[in-house]
Amino acid sequence: MTDLSLTSLRSLPALAWITAAAMGLALVLALIVAPEDADQGISQRIFYIHVPIALTAYFCFGLGALKALLLLWRGEERYDLESYVAIHQGTIFGALTLITGAIWAKASWGVWWTWSSNQLVLFLVLFLFYCAYFMLRFSLDDGPRRARSSAVYALFGVALIPVSFLAIRLAEDFIHPTVFTREGPQMSGSMFATFVVSWAAVTLLAYVLYRVELTGKRLDADLRELREALQ
């Protein structure tokens, strides 16, 4: 049975409340306090949500790969679930990045999708890659082999991020030159502060969701073991 330490469970609701407050603060800052962007107007405000979500997705994928590496290295079973949950969160945040990116593209360029935004294309590739990760997991039988295969695939994912980024940059050369860029004027101090608060809030949110899902999955596994023991 996995050891669910009660102290860590007790801290979770408090952490969830702090996260809710931080998210509220970030929204107020992003929607009301931060100054309007001179170029893009109100649509620029989605930046404070979109970019932190994207960074958090990268962070989750990285965390999943780190746990995968630990699993292969140390062979401890718990890393499998941790890696899976981190990648699950990363995929959710990746999907949100695609959605918010599409909304932003519609607001500022008039189209829902554009191949000239490298970050969006990269997220599409990564989203497809990590969806395949789940297909792999659900197709293999539960056990150490599944854990290790998933871990190897997760490690391929972090290698794929820079390689794909480079590939997408190179592909501009023959597909089309970049027409749109998001390199606007430098952020002002209060814009930057809003961005940092949003980033912290979204990271906290991802962490809380990670903990909640992990706890749920572990409870599930424990319950199954107890049932089997009783039968």
Binding site: L136, L140, L160
Partner: peptide
């Protein structure tokens, strides 16, 4: 080799491979 251990190996391999083949 990964896909061969799975239940739907013919289906699984393209899904695993194609995102990595994009670069």
């Amino acid at each position: 080799a990964m896909a061969a251990a799975g239940r739907a190996r013919e289906l699984l391999l393209p899904l695993l491979f194609l995102p990595l083949a994009i670069p």
